[in-house]
Design a protein around this nucleic acid. Structure first.
Length: 493
RNA sequence: CGGGGCGUGGCUCAGCCUGGUAGAGCACCUGGUUCGGGACCAGGGGGUCGGAGGUUCGAAUCCUCUCGCCCCGACCA
């Protein structure tokens, strides 16, 4: 049958990405332009992301709630910057029940307006603060060009919305949630991200400050994987979100909002996957281990299936997400390719020889540097005793999780350029897709715009201290003026 | 909205120029032999060619209109 190979990443990255999404059955286009159907394999990843994040939100004191999808148009237009930012991508409902509506409704592009409108009703005094809520929802933004997971007209996300007594408290919340995203991306997605504030031009419409986590994909384009906003009192003022303070005065509350979306699934794909298909970190893999039984005769089949089933039950009892691939009419080899394409972290082969020796063969999806190396041109194969198997499997899953992180971090650092002081050199670097470019910036919008217009690269983030270069730039790479920040520049999704 | 491409079984595509009433590979179904890196043989089901109109004895093929999709550029999580 010889299924066609995937396009190579090095030859056509976006064709490679599209093929993975399609062939691993993660998602496909719906009949409506720009919107997508998320299939079980893709949704399974999203569900695991949700579970992990939801727990982190609860652990930091947040509660889930749900606000409706239809928002009065007048709400959106109340905050000047907010309308300006979202007007071009609004989907508006003008008819209902066969009649023209008195006031058009928009499909939420984000929920600040409706949420702060409601908070205003719930808050009287400082005793009602803080409000710490999150919602899991879909949002709609009319996009010109779409890519599955990375940018679609409707997407799934979570949006946290909080209200606080003081600016300091709101700022602390904004940073705390950015930290939650960062931890999630490190520990679960195995995706190293750099964190920090956005420049003014990249700030969320209506926010005081926007912070982001940014990953570097394998084509050296940056992906904004999550944002956290300090909204100041902008929305509170517009929606009359006031409270009586401890001193008896009437004050506007301070708000934050923060979100991550199904875009992370795209980030996951572009961070780890290879020319053989999808690669999923064990913590987010709907199937962590797949067992492929191997046999020729009926007698062998009975013995092998017995052993495979026992292993299956043992792993399942140990809390491993395991699947026994008992499809007949498909050769073991064909199954190997299939599971590699779909990104299953560990493949376990059980055949007559294994049963005889009381072992199994485990093949990790990505080579583990701490295990016996693979023979040249072959996949790494580990011969594992049946005794203590579930413990060993756990250990290998953990090892794979950290291996993926290490690989991604090494790749990002190999594609980060620091110390450039010449604008011409910077242009040349961007021209050949060099990755993250750390350079001095005077802080002016003029210099930022100039770079964007001349190179298509933008400031992804002004990195927090721990992400900054050892030697800090002293001059703006564009105008040569005094550098107020070190900025990270890259082309982005 | 500007530039390019494409709509033919589930998928990828050939056929269109030089009209004659639809074909391949993969997938699917049945039976048998296979099975430690993409199995093979035999048999079988499934499309009226994006839509509408026109030319013609006859249209997937020619003409007109129309709808939709994809890719590249201007906006964005």
């Amino acid at each position: 049958m010889a299924e066609e190979k995937l396009p190579r990443r090095s030859e056509d990255f976006s064709a490679w990405y599209n093929e993975i999404v399609s062939r691993a059955e993660l998602a496909e286009h719906s009949p409506v332009r720009g919107s997508m159907v998320i299939r079980p394999n893709g949704y399974g990843i999203w569900e695991l992301m949700q579970q992990a994040l939801d727990k982190m939100f609860k652990d930091t004191g947040h509660q889930n709630a749900y606000f409706p999808m239809l928002i009065p148009l007048s709400f959106i237009t109340k905050e000047a910057k907010h309308v300006e930012g979202f007007a071009p991508e609004l989907a508006v409902v003008t008819q209902g029940g066969g009649k023209e509506l008195e006031e058009p409704l928009v499909l939420r592009p984000t929920s600040e307006t409706i949420i702060y409108h409601m908070y205003a009703k719930w808050v009287q005094s400082y005793r009602d603060l803080p409000i710490l809520m999150n919602q899991w929802a879909n949002v709609v933004r009319w996009e010109m060009r779409t890519r599955l997971f990375l940018r679609t007209m409707e997407f799934l996300w979570q949006e946290g919305h909080t209200a606080h007594e003081t600016e300091a408290e709101a700022e602390a919340e904004t940073l705390q949630m950015l930290g939650v995203y960062r931890t999630f991306m490190y520990d679960h997605m195995a995706m190293p991200v750099i964190c920090g504030p956005k420049s003014d031009s990249e700030r969320f419409a209506g926010a005081l400050r926007t912070y982001a986590v940014e990953g570097l994909m394998q084509d050296n384009k940056a992906l904004q994987a999550g944002t956290s906003h300090n909204l100041g009192q902008n929305f509170a003022k517009v929606f009359d979100l006031q409270f009586q303070s401890r001193e008896g005065t009437l004050e506007y509350a301070w708000n934050t909002s923060w979100g991550v979306s199904t875009r992370m699934v795209g980030g996951l794909i572009m961070t780890h996957s290879d020319d053989d298909g999808l690669v999923t970190p064990p913590k987010l893999a709907p199937v962590q281990v797949v067992i492929v039984p191997i046999f020729k005769t009926d007698v062998e089949q009975a013995v092998v299936m017995g052993a495979a089933d026992a292993v299956f039950r043992e792993l399942k009892a140990a809390g491993v997400r395991v699947k026994l691939d008992s499809r007949d009419s498909m050769s073991p080899g064909a199954k190997y390719y299939d599971h590699e394409l779909k990104g299953v972290p560990l493949r376990m082969e059980i055949g007559p020889k294994d049963v005889e020796k009381n072992t199994v063969v485990i093949v990790p999806r990505v080579e583990l540097s701490k295990e016996e190396a693979a023979k040249p041109g072959r996949k790494q194969k580990l011969f594992v005793p049946r005794e203590g198997l579930s413990e060993r499997v756990r250990q290998l899953l953990d090892a794979l999780q950290s291996q993926l992180f290490d690989n991604a971090l090494a790749r990002r650092e190999a594609n980060s350029v620091r110390g450039t002081t010449s604008y011409d050199e910077m242009k040349a670097l961007i021209e050949r897709d060099a990755g993250f470019i750390y350079a001095g910036w005077c802080g002016s919008a003029e210099c930022e715009t100039k770079v964007k217009e001349e190179t298509k690269a933008t400031i992804r983030v002004i990195p927090f201290e721990e992400f900054r270069s050892a030697v800090q730039p002293t001059h703006c790479i564009v105008c040569g003026g005094e550098a107020r920040h070190e900025a990270v520049w890259a082309k982005s999704y």
